[in-house]
């Protein structure tokens, strides 16, 4: 990041993993002039940030983590590139650990739009699906650049008007997707009639290298808040086989848990929202969140170390009875970050 220029970072790690190495290579690709040194035993990493450059790129992600792991970081950086980023990422599109590409597409992109990062080129396209352990999926992520971000005020999530979702299956019977949809609908229909879950069965090269199935669900409110939940089957050769009915039900219940947590941003994207608020213009931004995830708490500490910014954190107990758990109102004044490397035309 531009404001990080002049600083350097030395990380001591016990062991570096292949996905971390892959991530460092990705960062090297999107930047210009980064200096990265890893010592011979792989225990120390010296990193001097370069300029966020962007452009048309491609990267093979390590299949030990989902593409979501890499994409999340790119979502944070992409709006501040010199040239709009268009990157092809190959690897695992859906797994049990990281937020899937489907969920990021459905939740993170609308969130970016609210900060003024929009346009036709803001897109995540899934060309091929790839499940662990072998992966073989491919996506294209493109994002426009912005000079400044808009401050936001999201304090009222509004009521959920519809539930959408995708049930996908690759290299297994296409019937799996239908079975997941049936069971998930059975639970969600008790709350809302407007439910549509797409079935997505990819064939041939588009289906990647490993079999699997899973489901992503999103609940959309009248104010445009999108909450998400997802589940994927166990990777081939690991753990017991899961019935699609069970997976569908569990996923629907996870969505209900997410609704219970509530807030204007779903739990996966809390940190992205807080980062974009921090980097906004010198104006007050507010966002109502569900309970803070451990990842978000750690992220807030990083925001303090890098930008010297502390959020005002207020716990809001809901006055109404049936609207889920406690919420947290996060307030901050943006640091007034400008993307100076953006070319002016």
């Amino acid at each position: 990041m531009k404001s990080g220029k002049g600083n350097f970072l030395i990380l001591s790690v016990l062991y570096s993993l292949d996905f971390e190495a892959s991530f460092i290579r990705l960062i090297d690709k999107v930047t210009n002039g980064s200096r990265i040194e890893i010592n011979q035993t792989g225990t120390t990493l010296y990193y001097q940030p370069g300029l966020l450059y962007g452009g048309s790129l491609e990267h093979d992600c390590s299949p030990s983590r989902g593409i979501g792991y890499y994409l999340e970081s790119l979502l944070c950086l992409a709006p501040f590139m010199k040239h709009p980023l268009k990157i092809v990422l190959r690897g695992v599109t859906n797994d049990q650990v990281d937020p899937s590409v489907d969920v990021l597409k459905a939740t993170a992109l609308p969130l970016l739009k609210k900060f003024g990062i929009d346009g036709e080129s803001l897109e995540i396209k899934i060309n091929r699906r790839g499940m662990p352990p072998k992966g073989g999926g491919e996506i294209v992520f493109s994002c426009p650049v912005r000079k400044v971000l808009q401050p936001v005020q999201f304090t009222d999530p509004g009521k959920i008007k519809r539930i959408r979702g995708t049930a996908y299956s690759v290299r297994v019977s296409p019937q799996m997707a239908n079975r997941m949809v049936e069971s998930a609908r059975g639970i969600l229909n008790k709350f809302l009639p407007d439910i549509y879950i797409y079935t997505d069965h990819m064939k041939g090269v588009s289906s990647g290298k490993s079999p699997g199935f899973g489901m992503c669900l999103t609940a959309e409110t009248i104010n445009g808040t999108i909450l998400s939940a997802e589940l994927a089957s166990n990777p081939q050769g690991q753990g017991e086989a899961v019935l699609p009915e069970e997976l569908g039900q569990s996923c629907a219940k996870l969505l209900l848990e997410e609704v219970y947590r509530g807030g204007c941003v779903d739990s996966t994207n809390q940190s992205l929202a807080l980062l974009l608020m921090t980097l906004g213009q010198r104006d007050v931004s507010k966002v109502l969140l569900g309970p803070l995830s451990p990842y978000t708490i750690e992220f807030l500490r990083h925001l303090r170390s890098f930008f010297q910014i502390m959020f005002k954190i207020e716990t809001k107990t809901t006055e109404e009875e049936h609207t889920g758990g406690e919420k947290v109102l996060m307030t901050c004044v943006g640091i007034g970050f400008h993307n100076l490397s953006k070319t002016i035309r």
Partner: peptide, 30 residues
């Protein structure tokens, strides 16, 4: 390092009162 916020203690969503706890989050609620 994973941004997903896992549910530690899942509630029993088959119970009526648990279901009622989020009833008004939907347009069908009050």
């Amino acid at each position: 390092d994973c941004s997903k916020f896992l549910v530690e203690k899942p509630q029993d969503w088959d119970l009526e009162e648990v279901m009622n706890s989020i009833r008004d989050c939907f347009v069908t609620g009050k």
